[in-house]
Amino acid sequence: MPDYVLTATAAVEPSVDIGEMVLRETPLALASVAAFDHAEAAGQAGDRLARHLGQTLPGVQRFAGTGESLCFWTGDQQWFVTAPIAQEHVLAAQLSEALAEAAAVTDQTGGWVALDVEGPALTAVFERLVGFDVAAMQTGDALRATIEHIGCFVLCLSEDRHMRLFCARSFAEALHHALCVAMKTAAAQAGQVPG
């Protein structure tokens, strides 16, 4: 037993219910993958990543996978890969090994926070926050957005019902606050919360 125990902490309060909606942090292991030039030309990075994940890689502004194990497109030949938090210390190493020098792999578990918003009629929440057409978002979409000056990825896990946002951890409380304000407004407007 080590003399000192180091414990992980959540970025924001665990779960907030607002009207018929819930906002919570989903702890995830996360790593970035960016193909090196030499491997990109040969398509090696994508092939190896797809083989390792056992699925087709997502297209532009899309994600693949389910639940906590997702892979989403972040740029040309670039992806973010998430996994259950239990893999936080091994995810990057496993990816690195699987990609075998074809891509830069960087552990981003501590860098990004995933905030899940679930409930009915989420368009009313997100049309206050993002500039893109959130009503047109389909399950599997992964769009980059700036919310209150905070750079985010917005993943549509279920149309109008379940969104997952990723933001840099230092902004997590600020984004959490912005989400709460928008959710309260939408809930009040939809009559989900008595005045």
């Binding site: 960016a34 030039d37 960087t106 552990d107 501590g110 860098g111 990004w112 840099a168 951890r169 230092s170």
Partner: peptide, 11 residues
């Protein structure tokens, strides 16, 4: 042949 990414928040 080089890739960059910010890890300011990661550590």
């Amino acid at each position: 042949d080089v890739q960059l990414i910010s890890t300011t928040d990661a550590w």
